[in-house]
């Protein structure tokens, strides 16, 4: 069995993001780059299946600048078997989904895991787009993944507004991971050593013969509107009084 996990390099969640003075993008200086947290969860789920089912190859793929190798190495150090870097810049979710569809055609995985959302552009789109391009079922925002013994289908629990629902998808399918699916492991030192020797294939995005022209163009970027400064209150009484008589919300 083969599991493909698509991941993304993003600024660390702890990094303070600032819009640059020109309003064209963010300030990249001082940004620490990591594997998108939901992608880590996707990798972990693939590794768990590998551990329980045996005979499973876990292949990572990312689309981005050559620096994304670092994030692929992190995933390899966690335990994935090999990685594919498709080099391309300034793709939007449409472009990424087209590239990934090509890689899926090439690799013919039994299931594809992605994070539900990248914490940089916060789009929450690539998995759904990829599913449509492949004509596959999608299961988004999952917190539980149970593959049938014959590996032909999976039952998933999905986090939806107001609760959870269980769906069944025939494999291959596109699965996007939500927060509670698992607790991703840290790469061990031996894992990191081994990862250096694992295969990492580089493919030029332009060579895939897909349209990479973005459909969504960022014209400008601005910092969020600032909130007016508030004040500290000394006691619960003062707080209740302020909410009643100043803010008039009680």
């Amino acid at each position: 069995m083969k599991i493909l996990v698509a991941i993304k390099r993003v600024p660390d969640a702890e990094t303070t993001i600032k819009v640059n003075p020109e309003g064209t993008g963010i300030v990249n200086a001082g940004v620490k780059w990591v594997v998108n947290p939901f992608c880590e969860i996707a990798i972990e789920e693939a590794l768990k299946i590998k551990e329980t089912k045996g005979d499973v190859e876990v292949v990572l793929v990312t689309v981005g600048r050559s620096e994304s190798q670092e994030q692929l190495r992190t995933g390899l150090a966690m335990g994935a078997d090999r990685a594919i870097l498709v080099t391309a810049e300034n793709l939007d979710t449409t472009g990424v989904s087209r590239v990934l569809a090509k890689i899926v055609e090439k690799e013919s995985p039994d299931v594809v895991f992605l994070g539900k959302q990248a914490i940089d552009d916060d789009s929450n789109e690539v998995g759904q787009m990829l599913a449509q391009r492949l004509g596959w079922a999608q299961a988004c925002y999952i917190s539980e993944f149970n593959m049938a013994d014959d590996a032909k289908s999976a039952q998933v629990v999905r986090e939806i507004d107001g609760g959870m629902r269980t769906d069944k998808v025939m494999l291959p399918a596109i699965i996007t991971a939500d927060l509670r699916l698992n607790e991703p492991r840290y790469a061990s030192l031996p894992g990191i050593m081994k990862a250096r020797k694992k295969p990492l294939e580089e493919i030029d995005g332009a060579s895939l013969g897909v349209d990479l022209e973005p459909k969504i163009i960022i014209k400008s970027m601005a910092p969020p509107p600032a909130r007016a400064a508030g004040r500290l209150v000394e006691s619960v009484d003062e707080l209740i009084n302020a909410l009643k008589n100043e803010a008039k919300v009680l």
């Binding site: 963010i26 459909k215 969504i216 163009i217 014209k219 970027m221 969020p224």
Partner: peptide, 20 residues
């Protein structure tokens, strides 16, 4: 005809043009 959307957990608001 452009749209505004938050990115980076609301640390930036992008004005975007959708093609087509």
């Amino acid at each position: 005809g452009t749209f505004v959307r938050p990115m980076y957990a609301g640390s930036a608001f992008a004005t975007v043009e959708l093609k087509g």
